[in-house]
Amino acid sequence: MFVRTVYVTGDPAKAEAAIRVLNNEGRELLEERPGYRGADVFVDRELGKLLAVSWWGAEAARRNSDQVMRERRGPMLEPFAGTVAVENYEAAVFHSVQPPRAGGGMRFTRVEFAPADTDLFVETFRSSAIPRLEAVPGFARCSLFVDRQRGRGMVGSLYVDHASMAASRAGQAAARSADAAKAQVTVVGLEEFEVVHADVRPG
C-alpha cells in the first residue's frame, strides 16, 4: 500500500473544528476516490497538531487523488491550519493485532537512513520491532512508511488507550535504540498523539 501524510499545526482552540471536517467532509471526499483503503486522524490537543494519513492500494491511485485533495485541503482545514506539510510514502509494513480505539494513543518516530539500506530497515522492523510490540500490553497496530529515494521514514505504533502507550515508553526507548543501530537509521523525531479515527482496509 501507499500513503499520504498531512501534518498540520495551528491554534489548539480551533483543532476540534478541523477534526469534525476531516471526519465528515474529508472522509466522504476520500471515499469517492478509486483505490482508497482507509484513513487515520491523530491529534495533539495541547499543542495544536493534527496528523492525517490516507491509505491507497496503489501508488497511481494515491497520485491520481493528489489534485482534488490539494484543492480541497486548505478550505477544509481553515481556520485551524497555520502550517501544512504533505508527504508521500510507501507503506512497507502494516501489522495489526486488534482494532485501534478512538481515544487511544499513537507514537510515531521519524527516521533517516541511507537509501541503499531501505530493505535492511524494513527487514529489521519485521524481525525485531514487531515481535517486541506484540508483547506490549495494549498494543493494537504498527506500520512502517518509507521513502526509498530520499532515505526517510516514519514508524507508527498504536495502543488501545493512553495508559498502555505511556507504560510502553521505557521499554520501547531501549528497543528503538537497539533497532536503530542494527538497521543503520537515525531517529530525527519522536511524537505522541491521541487516536481520533483509525480505519484501514488492507485488502
Rank of each mutant, 00 (worst) to 15 (best):
Asp117Glu: 15
Ser164Gln: 01
Gly57Trp: 07
Trp55Gly: 05
Arg33Thr: 03
Ala13Tyr: 13
Leu51Glu: 01
Val93Met: 12
Leu29Trp: 00
Arg169Pro: 01
Thr9Arg: 15
Gly35Cys: 11
Glu16Gln: 13
Gly74Gln: 11
Val84Trp: 08
Met1Phe: 06
Ala60Thr: 08
Lys49Gly: 02
Met76Gly: 03
Leu47Gly: 12
Pro34Gln: 09
Val187Ser: 08
Tyr159Thr: 00
Gly138Thr: 00
Val195Asp: 05
Cys142His: 03
Leu190Pro: 02
Lys14Leu: 15
Arg141Gly: 03
Val93Phe: 05
Gly105Tyr: 02
Arg73Cys: 02
Val41Leu: 15
Glu194Ala: 07
Leu120Trp: 01
Met76Tyr: 08
Thr118Leu: 14
Ile19Ala: 00
Arg45Thr: 08
Ala183Tyr: 01
Gly104Pro: 05
Val6Asp: 06
Ala60Asn: 05
Trp55Glu: 06
Ala163Gly: 00
Pro34Arg: 02
Pro100Leu: 04
Ala170Met: 12
Ala81Gly: 11
Arg150Trp: 00
Leu51Asp: 02
Gly171Cys: 06
Pro137Phe: 06
Val187His: 03
Gly10Thr: 09
Ala180Leu: 10
Val41Arg: 04
Gly189Ser: 13
Met165Trp: 05
Phe2Arg: 13
His95Val: 05
Asp40Trp: 06
Gly105Glu: 04
Glu194Leu: 04
Arg101Met: 14
Ala135His: 10
Asp179Arg: 09
